[in-house]
Design a protein around this nucleic acid. Sequence first.
DNA 1: CCATCATGTAACATATAAAGTTACATGAGG
DNA 2: CCTCATGTAACTTTATATGTTACATGATGG
Lengths: 152, 152
Amino acid sequence: MRRDSRLSGVLHVLLHMAQQAGPFTSETLAKAMDTNPVVIRRIMAGLRELGYVRSEKGHGGGWRLACDLSKVTLRDIYAALGSPSLLAMGNRTEAPGCLVEQAVNAALDQAFHDAEALLLARLGEVTLAMLGDDLRKRLGSRKIHHISAHGA
Amino acid sequence: MRRDSRLSGVLHVLLHMAQQAGPFTSETLAKAMDTNPVVIRRIMAGLRELGYVRSEKGHGGGWRLACDLSKVTLRDIYAALGSPSLLAMGNRTEAPGCLVEQAVNAALDQAFHDAEALLLARLGEVTLAMLGDDLRKRLGSRKIHHISAHGA
DNA sequence: CCATCATGTAACATATAAAGTTACATGAGG
DNA sequence: CCTCATGTAACTTTATATGTTACATGATGG
């Protein structure tokens, strides 16, 4: 499959939501992300369960942020997605009887584990608020490109 | 797709080869790895190009180690496989026009890059000889389980 | 010279997982 | 009670590692 881009995608959504008020429908967000509303609902479901966002049905419904952006890190969001595997590589066999394979696994596991730990640590250092600050810096004098709230 | 296990697989092969002399046919190695001879040839092709192993056709042919095991690291082997992507996650869009996406990418790229660098560094610290030493330690008093050179 | 063995490689098949899509149920307004 | 929006199951598409088949190439031994 291609590389998992859910974290990238959901962060994009959250950051857009942090730039303007009001509920966003899945359709609106999907248009901004050039994808499908169901995909949005899917990646947002885990965040809703952990209370990072709220959703409401019916007229005037949609998604809203429901957390302190300075308290939620990228690692939290990653966890809300179900903590998908970080590495594209793995061992051929997890619990091998072959001692050769055990030796190989031990060496690789060490490296893999260290890399995963560092990645999680880095993600844990960045809050959504910090992402927002960085975005505002990038915007500079430029006007914020708000996504249109009512379709194209 | 499942996680890439080529590095794990090829290391297994190399370590087996380091335990006994003589050429190994792809079929013999495939049996030990419970896979297909063509898969063996495929993952060994890159190593042959870099001179880590040699292959010969015809009677008495097969694969032989052709390098100083104390000079070749797991990172070298990884590179010989064509440096496949290390991380299972990536950015939704690599060169986005959207500033929001740029901010997200910047934060993720930082974390991704650090993790990849650490993983490569760790792989670069381990030589094939070190793997062999570790294997001998694991074998202890036990007899080495040589793979049978002529089928079953 | 030629039968056999082994690699080299293209082509095709399978498996898995993310992403995209369709369809329909549920519930909130107005 | 009609419309809007989420919730979710089911299916399709796509990408990629892995598995398999088929056949070409070249080396060895008789």
